[in-house]
Design a protein around this nucleic acid. Structure first.
Lengths: 342, 342
DNA sequence: CAATAAAGTGACAGCGCTATCATTTGTCAT
DNA sequence: ATGACAAATGATAGCGCTGTCACTTTATTG
């Protein structure tokens, strides 16, 4: 059947450009050109080389290519977590934005730890990525310096209330908190409570909280009760925390949650406790997750455009190799989902 | 303040080993040894070099390192999707398993498309990863050949009912389907219905379905109704599909869903329709997602060990450079969560 | 105190590719 | 023909690092 020598041979020396060139009877550089589709090439040569490439199952070595050309096909991505569905959605966006360029994401997880981020970003930069996309704008001084000095494009995601190293893509979390307050006040709520998760890691949740309080204050109102779970955000934490809060302060008329996960837990508590959302108790989340929208009564919340943030960041950052003077900030905005729980 | 020359200079030529060596007054190879912590080294030299490395903010180029040593620090990962929380959880496990080795994951998304997987795996292999971790065991012939021929370690995840290329880590989905049937029959259910999502992409859901039907048949039973949503799995699809199904066949006493997302949607439909789970209608899922467990009545389901699958795969695959003779299959099992909905 | 071993260091080649410049070949107007 | 010019291809020199082997010191030992 004309099988190739070494085709089934597992530990054969991998096939290189030079092997292909030799068999095709051309020089290495010609094969390289065929593969990259650059330079003037005789159609005959092209076809012959392609045939040999197919036949030998040649896989180019991008490491070598990148090293030689200094044109990287890797993009470093740092996210705090994958447990929270928000970040996989950002990643999806990033992948979509990278797709056309044929670049791959090298990803790392910081576990919301700035020290871990420092190490991670160090490792990622070692792969000489074409760009870095990091979630959050809080970094150790070392991380900031490294990102700045790397010279490559850097996108910081999620939050747009910060000075950019290069590109910032996100929304105003403080603004979302303010909008929440305005919206709920307009709907007639007066006795506000807040149920949150552990903030030490989640600066954006705290910003939303601050925006909320600020606008409440301006309206002559304030939180009549608030409770923070000591664990990370989860449905279970939301349920348990709301339960505790109501045990001490049953007289609140609306509860703002740090995010949708927590809020969905709150809705579940209401179901168990026989409280009708909106009628007996208003419930308001943040993120606009699918799960909240498919509850029997859709959750009232704010939609953040997570997929868009990822996609825009990836697209923008590949559009231009050098950093714009003074950086750029893209506000992806947010929108209130009326829902039926507040 | 004794700032370094070029320290704030964005587009300066990146610092290389040679720069560090020169400034430290040693040879390149010595710096390389210090950084990798190999070979005999005078403590003084080590400290001096480390100081210079710090001072210059030197970031090693892993591309060059990998090329020179043929020891890769990259692991290629291919997942079908990030929309379904299951895969981010697998990724989390992979990251955890990779952590100790200091390797980074280069990830790609196939969108459940085998052709896209073929292209993706081609690109990933071009980075000369130390290993490949792919979700699923269904590949195009070309993909299979490439994985086999790459010579590197390959882990195929999720499903353990398949012949391995090298390492397979997962559970028996057919077995899970069978266990579902046995469990529900034991609980006294007789009139079974099935609500699923679009299977064309999700072979594992179909395997569970087949296991379910097989055991039902063995027990002299069968599905009295079944309905497949034409969309991908989602809470909304689960809700809508159950609603349609019950409209035509209100007489079923238990519904098995293709997974928890769908099942949670089913629970939501019951809430809306005033059906009491378990009492009026049994509902059974698959996966053991957090959301299902924090419903007012925890979902009856089967827990798959997604994080474990990822972690074990990563750990196992780094333990040994060469493929074991005949491959290896690790069954991570599953367990029934009684819950309160069936 | 020579002999020997270890510790510490460096020179050099090469990983697989691409940028750059040089060379060969074919084509056309003169 | 013949120079001029483009098209097609190649030779060479790195990219930044590590493997290998050779070399210089400094202990160690009989």
């Amino acid at each position: 059947m004309g099988r190739l020598k070494g085709n089934g041979n597992l530990h054969a020396r991998p096939i290189t450009l030079s092997d292909v060139a030799q068999r095709a009877g051309v020089s290495e550089i010609t094969v390289s050109r065929v593969l990259r589709g650059v330079g003037p090439l005789a159609e005959g040569t092209r076809l012959r080389v392609m045939a040999v490439v197919e036949e030998m199952g040649y896989v180019p070595n991008r490491l070598a290519g990148t090293l030689a050309s200094a044109v990287s096909g890797l993009v470093g991505v740092s996210v705090p977590s994958l447990s929270n569905i928000v970040f996989p959605e950002v990643l999806r966006g990033i992948h979509a934005g990278l797709e056309a360029s044929g670049r791959q994401a090298v990803i790392g997880i910081t576990d919301y730890d700035l020290q871990a981020e420092e190490t991670l970003i160090g490792s990622l930069l070692a792969w000489k990525p074409a760009a870095m996309i990091v979630v959050g704008s809080d970094h150790t001084p070392v991380t900031s310096r490294r990102l700045r000095q790397s010279g490559i494009r850097v996108a910081e995601l999620m939050d747009c209330d910060v000075p950019p190293i290069d590109l910032v893509v996100g929304m105003s979390h403080k603004g979302a908190g303010q909008a929440t307050a305005r919206h709920l006040i307009a709907r007639g709520y007066r006795r506000f409570a807040y149920v949150g998760h552990d903030w030490t890691t989640d600066r954006r949740a705290r910003l939303r909280y601050e925006g909320l309080c600020e606008t409440l204050r301006e309206g002559g109102l304030g939180l009549v009760a608030e409770m923070l779970s000591s664990s990370v955000s989860s449905t279970e934490a939301g349920r348990a925390t709301l339960k505790s809060l109501l045990a001490t302060r049953p007289d609140v008329d609306v509860v703002v949650f740090s995010n949708d996960d927590m809020a969905v837990g709150g809705v579940f508590h209401c179901m168990t406790a026989g409280l009708r959302p909106r009628t007996d108790l208003g419930l308001f989340g943040f993120n606009g997750l699918e799960i909240g929208q498919s509850l029997p009564q859709p959750l009232s919340t704010i939609r953040s455009n997570r997929y868009l943030i990822g996609r825009l960041a990836a697209e923008k950052i590949l559009q231009r190799i050098d950093r714009p003077e003074g950086g750029e900030v893209i506000d992806t905005g947010f929108e209130i989902c009326e829902g039926e729980t507040a």
